[in-house]
Design a protein around this nucleic acid. Structure first.
Length: 318
DNA sequence: CTCAGGCGGTGCGTTGCTTT
DNA sequence: AAAGCAACGCACCGCCTGAG
């Protein structure tokens, strides 16, 4: 520990205007869980005394209870837990198994609807990506590259360590965070420094020219004064076609940002992916990983939330 | 009473099977 | 081959309930 190294904002007890609890070591959960809010809210997980976050989540029950679902990975060091009831549990199990990591959580009360909480979660994830330059390694479907993830209990499929040098693509690098241009508005043609396509009416004719490729997309009202929905897809034409049949309560426009192809299985493929991605999004010559699509979509939703303190009208409804 | 675990539901997107 | 549509998969949540 050096006096000169300032604590990152994302570890502070008032990060992003919330009131964060002290850190509760998972090992001591029985005794110390009372420090976690017994309210709905947000939570963050890190390696004990670590300088980065591994997971950010939200819950509408109590932060305390949600952590109790997370710590099931401690039960059996021989068996990776299932994906339910907490999708990050297999993740923590894998990192503990691979590196011997131990984890702790801190929570914050948050008042608001489910949409508000999820918007705030997206905002925190985006802020973390901006502050640290990386994603939390257990969000967005990311996973340890040497392990396969368990699926839900009902499937009976339990993950574990990969053998024979196989690599899990979900262990690939995170995409560099999208940055807000000063005074940028979500409906702008260059919002978040992306070159969005000219907004067009969302109908079959206009979708004919949209390629079946990975993309981020926005759906906007007719006046382009608001963004109603933000999404990501591996196939822009197909996804937007289904949106074109949805009742938007008015005629709407769409605008896309096309991405390079997505590489799923293995594809340790591109040796240059790290270096080329540093030029992203300008340089589109490289394949994207599935989790990177989700990271970028999250950046957009987080930035929208940061601006309006609500999510787009048709996002996370109900 | 509290709380962990079970269970069904929801939002969001993909896959795969028909029909044109 | 493309379009239309239903089934599926995933990652969560919230409610209920029985055990302590």
């Amino acid at each position: 520990m050096t006096l000169s190294s300032a604590e990152p904002d994302y570890l502070s007890e008032n990060w992003c205007g919330l009131k964060w609890s002290s850190w509760v070591k998972h090992k001591n959960f029985r005794n110390d869980s009372a420090h976690l809010p017994k309210f709905p809210g947000l939570y963050r997980v890190r390696v004990i005394d670590g300088d980065s976050l591994v997971y950010i989540g939200q819950t509408g029950r109590t932060v305390r209870k949600r952590q109790s679902e997370l710590i099931v990975y401690l039960k059996d060091p021989e068996k990776m837990p299932f994906n339910d009831p907490h999708t990050a549990a297999p993740n923590l199990w894998a990192w503990a198994d691979a590196e011997g990591f131990e984890f702790e959580s801190s929570g914050a009360f948050f008042e608001g609807t489910k949409q508000d909480r999820e918007g705030m979660e997206a905002y925190l994830l985006w802020q973390y990506r901006l502050e640290s330059g990386n994603s939390t390694q257990c969000n967005f479907g990311r996973f340890h590259e040497d392990y396969l993830k368990s699926r839900n209990k009902s499937s009976g499929f339990r993950g574990g360590k990969l053998t024979g040098g196989e690599k899990n693509a979900a262990g690939g690098p995170s995409a560099p965070p999208l940055r807000l241009k000063a005074d940028g508005m979500p409906a702008d043609p260059d919002w978040m420094n992306l070159s969005w396509s000219e907004p067009e009416i969302l109908n079959k004719e206009n979708l004919k020219e949209i390629p079946g490729e990975p993309a981020l997309y926005r759906i906007m009202n007719r006046k382009c004064s608001d963004v109603l929905y933000i999404g990501q897809t591996k196939n822009a034409r197909a996804r937007l076609t289904t949106h074109s049949k949805y009742d938007w309560e008015e005629e709407v426009l769409f605008s896309v940002y096309l991405l390079p192809g997505v590489s799923d299985s293995d594809s340790a493929s591109d040796p240059d992916i790290g270096s080329v991605l540093s030029d992203f999004p300008t340089n589109k010559s490289v394949l994207l990983y599935t989790h990177q699509l989700k990271e970028l979509e999250n950046d957009l939703i987080g930035a929208y939330y940061g601006h309006f303190r609500r999510v787009p009208k048709f996002q996370i409804r109900k």
